[in-house]
Structure formats: structure tokens, C-alpha cells
Amino acid sequence: MTQSFTRRHLFRNLAAPAAAMLVLAGCATTGGAVSPEADKAALLKRAQAYWALLRANDSLGAWPYEEASKDPKATVEEYLKRGGVAYDAVEVRGVRSIEGDRAVVNLWMRYSLPLLRLKNQETAVEDEWRRIDGVWHHVLRRSVMFTKDKE
């Protein structure tokens, strides 16, 4: 009986740490390098959520998706002032490219510019995204009319 108890005790003492190591190794594997397919899926999901918010005219909800939201110099108030576009329809059509922490997503959109009285404009665009701290963020395009950066 002593030998049986010792084997059981030895097995329990060795098996528990081994099982814990396997669990931790599995977490490290899934939490580390992301497969290209998973990365692409995460980007598409984030882009669809972002554009759905803009289509619903929820700029405040879209702010956390913006690269600028990670910049301490940028403010949500400045972001909300930029408006002027009403998105009637937006389709995220796929990921064009992912290179490191930069990506381009293909979009199609129908939009209006109420201040200019332009309606039902359609275009296909390449939408830039940047990964910050493991999360994809939308990169705002700067207007060609306002190229001077704020100091």
C-alpha cells in the first residue's frame, strides 16, 4: 500500500505542474503570433464596425477606432468638428494588404456632402489602418487643402 500511495502521490505531484505548463504554453501560443487569417478577420471586423458607426452618424462612437484617439495631442472635440459627410452606404470589400502594422482595406461608399448640395456620390477607396498595441485603428486622411500640421 505504501508503494501504491507513493506512485499516486508522485504522479499527482508531477502531473499537475506538467498540465499547468501545457495550459500556459497553449495560452502563450494563441496570445503571441496571430495567424494571417485571424489578423485579416480582426481587421475586417474592426473596419466594418467603424464604418457602421460612421454610417449611423455616430462620430463619438467611432472616435476610439481612430488612430488619432491614441495621440495625446488630439482631442475628440476636434475630431467631431470635422464632419460634413453623410454616408448613405458603405461596404468593406476586403483587405488589400497587411504589411507589419499597416494595412489597406478596400471600400465602396455612397455619400452626400450636404453643405455643397452634392448627393449620391459613389466611390471606391483604399482605407488605411494601423495596428497600435495589437488593435487596428483607422488612419484619418488629411485634407489636401489643409496640409499645415499643428504645432
Rank of each mutant, 00 (worst) to 15 (best):
T2V: 09
S4V: 14
F5C: 02
F5E: 14
F5Y: 07
R8W: 14
L10N: 12
L10M: 11
F11M: 10
L14C: 11
A16E: 06
P17E: 08
L24H: 03
L24V: 13
A25C: 10
A25M: 07
A25H: 01
C27G: 13
G32L: 09
A33C: 04
V34R: 05
V34C: 00
S35P: 07
K40D: 14
A41L: 02
L43W: 06
L43D: 07
K45S: 14
A49R: 05
Y50M: 06
Y50Q: 05
L53G: 04
L53Y: 04
S59E: 07
L60C: 03
A62W: 03
W63C: 10
Y65N: 00
E66P: 04
E67K: 00
A68V: 15
P72E: 10
E78N: 14
V85H: 01
V85A: 08
Y87W: 14
A89I: 04
V90H: 01
R96Y: 06
D101V: 02
A103K: 01
N106S: 12
L107V: 06
W108V: 02
S112G: 06
L113T: 08
L113I: 12
P114N: 06
P114R: 00
P114E: 07
R117M: 07
K119E: 15
Q121T: 03
Q121E: 15
E122P: 00
V125T: 13
V125W: 05
E126V: 03
R131G: 00
R131C: 06
D133H: 02
G134A: 09
V135Q: 10
H137L: 08
H137T: 05
H138Y: 13
H138P: 08
R141I: 09
V144Y: 01
F146V: 10
F146K: 09
K150T: 09
E151Q: 09
